[in-house]
Amino acid sequence: MVRMSAEERRESVIRAAMIEFAHGGYYGTSTEAIAKRVGVSQPYLFRLFPGKRAIFLAAAEYCMELARHSFEEASEGLEGEEALHAMAGAYVKVIAEHPERLLMQMQTYVAVAAAEEAGDHELGEAVRAGWMRLWDTVHAPLGADVDGTTTFMAYGMLVNCLVAMGFPPEHRVWEGLYPSARVTGRLEK
């Protein structure tokens, strides 16, 4: 049996936490559930992370980094409309293949809002920094056009909300969404 390094175990905790938090949110997810999913004890989790909040933040940052990497990879060597279509296609694929990433994004925004309301700005600052890295990753291939980047990100958030609410791909709410009239797991031109 091959033993995992502490760093490999940490990464497995982050992936498991993302799945658990995606479905239960920050307040509805226990560290016990995360430990169980990974196959470690709760005390071991706390050797890797100082607490639940640190685990959540690591999972949120990991989720945003996965989205950023998807856009970066899809748009490599492309500009303008070609980059837009490639990034949109990559995002549709992520949603179809990894819905927990979308749900984790949504849970992250809710957790930030709750923390900000309570006067805790640390989580929000970290998430906003991740969002800006995501923004910049999209912005450059779209020709550094603020309107184009804003539109792309706005459509992405609309897609997030519609998927999170469970609208099926054939539902009429998807009509008119650019670049595809329906979210089907692939781009339709």
Rank of each mutant, 00 (worst) to 15 (best):
V2P: 15
V2I: 12
R3D: 14
M4R: 07
S5C: 05
S5L: 08
R9Y: 04
E11C: 05
V13M: 01
I14T: 09
R15I: 09
R15T: 12
F21Y: 12
A22I: 02
H23Y: 02
H23L: 11
G25V: 01
Y26E: 10
Y26K: 08
E32Q: 11
I34Q: 06
K36P: 07
K36T: 14
R37G: 07
V40K: 04
V40G: 07
Q42T: 15
Q42H: 06
G51I: 05
K52H: 12
I55P: 10
A59Q: 00
Y62K: 13
C63M: 14
C63L: 11
M64C: 08
E65L: 06
L66A: 14
R68M: 05
S70I: 02
A74Q: 09
A74D: 10
L78E: 10
G80K: 05
E82K: 13
E82I: 01
A86N: 08
Y91I: 02
I95C: 10
I95E: 06
I95G: 04
P99H: 01
R101T: 10
L102G: 15
L103K: 15
M104T: 04
M104P: 04
Q107F: 00
A111G: 08
A111T: 12
V112M: 09
A115R: 01
A118M: 03
D120H: 13
E122L: 15
L123N: 07
E125S: 07
A126L: 01
R128H: 11
G130V: 00
R133W: 02
R133C: 08
L134C: 12
A140W: 00
